[in-house]
Amino acid sequence: MKPELKNNIRRLRFDHNGITQQELAERVGVTRQTIIALEANRYAPSLLLAYRIARFFGVQIEGVFQVDESER
């Protein structure tokens, strides 16, 4: 089975003063729909977008995105 990319974006948003999806989207240069798709694990971002999101939250990329090994 294809490994799945999981993320903590929703939790990180709440840890950052509950920033909204719209605010996060504007800060990292995507649409709100893309943030929604990311949080629902329906979309695997480009490396550049992953980097922007991690930098926005002030963590490493691994702190935001993890590959779910159990899906292998």
Partner: peptide, 10 residues
């Protein structure tokens, strides 16, 4: 309107 209209996913 703020933000982008089309992004990488689109």
């Amino acid at each position: 309107q703020t933000g982008v209209v089309m992004d990488e996913r689109d």
